[in-house]
C-alpha cells in the first residue's frame, strides 16, 4: 500500500487514544475498589446495620419492664493475645429497661505493652439490636502496659422491645490484638 504511511500513523494515534482511555478506566476502577470501603461504612451507618461497637443513644423509653426478666450470660475470650480476660460476673438476671453495670478483668501477662480491641457477638444474634451499651471498653482499642491488670466496665440496658420469646442473651467479647497501631509486640 503506497499511501499506507499516513493512514497507518493516524490509526496508531487512534489506537493509542483508546488505550489511554481504557487504562484510565482501569485505574479509576482500582480506586473504586478502595472507595467501596468508606461507602460501605456509610451505608451500614445509614441502615443501622453492623453497629456492633457504637455507643447507643439513650433508649427513648427507659420504662423498666418488671413483668419479665432476661438472663444475661457473659463470656470473654482473648484471640491469640497474651491476656487473661474474664467477666467478674458470669451471669445475671435483669429486667428489660433496667440499667446494668458489669465489670471485666483484663490482665496482660506479657512483659511488653499490648494493644487489643474487643469485638462483641450476641447469641441469639437477633438480640444484638436490643442490647444498648452506654459505656463499654469495646468502643476503642485498649493498651495494657507490661503485666498490668485492669478492671473495665460495661454499662448497658436491654431494650424493652426485646421479643418476649428471648429469655437468655449471651454476650461474648473477643479481644483481638491490634497490630500496627503502636501495639506491635
Amino acid at each position: 500500500m503506497a499511501e499506507a504511511a499516513h493512514p497507518a500513523a493516524e490509526r496508531a494515534r487512534d489506537n493509542r487514544r483508546v488505550l489511554t482511555r481504557l487504562s484510565v478506566v482501569a485505574a479509576l476502577m482500582f480506586g473504586f475498589g478502595f472507595a467501596l470501603v468508606p461507602f460501605y461504612e456509610k451505608v451500614c451507618l445509614a441502615l443501622g446495620v453492623n453497629s456492633l461497637v457504637e455507643r447507643s443513644e439513650q433508649a427513648a423509653n427507659t420504662q423498666v419492664d418488671t413483668s419479665r426478666s432476661v438472663t444475661i450470660e457473659l463470656d470473654a475470650n482473648a484471640h491469640q493475645l497474651p491476656w487473661r480476660f474474664r467477666p467478674l460476673t458470669r451471669h445475671l438476671s435483669v429486667h428489660p429497661g433496667e440499667l446494668v453495670h458489669v465489670e471485666y478483668e483484663i490482665a496482660n501477662v506479657r512483659s511488653a505493652a499490648v494493644t487489643g480491641h474487643a469485638v462483641p457477638s450476641y447469641g441469639p444474634a437477633l438480640a444484638g439490636q436490643y442490647f444498648r451499651k452506654l459505656e463499654c471498653f469495646c468502643f476503642k482499642p485498649q493498651t495494657l502496659a507490661a503485666g498490668e491488670t485492669r478492671t473495665m466496665p460495661v454499662t448497658f440496658l436491654i431494650d424493652p422491645a426485646l421479643p418476649r420469646e428471648v429469655h437468655t442473651i449471651t454476650l461474648s467479647y473477643t479481644f483481638f490484638e491490634v497490630a500496627g497501631l503502636g501495639g506491635k509486640s
Binding site: L36, V37, N50, H79, H117, V119, F176, V178, G180
Partner: peptide, 16 residues
C-alpha cells in the same frame, strides 16, 4: 502493613 480493612480488631469488617 498493619492496615485493618478486613481485620475486626482494628475496626475492619470481613463482610466488606
Amino acid at each position: 502493613f498493619g492496615t485493618t480493612f478486613f481485620n475486626a480488631a482494628g475496626g475492619g469488617d470481613p463482610v466488606l
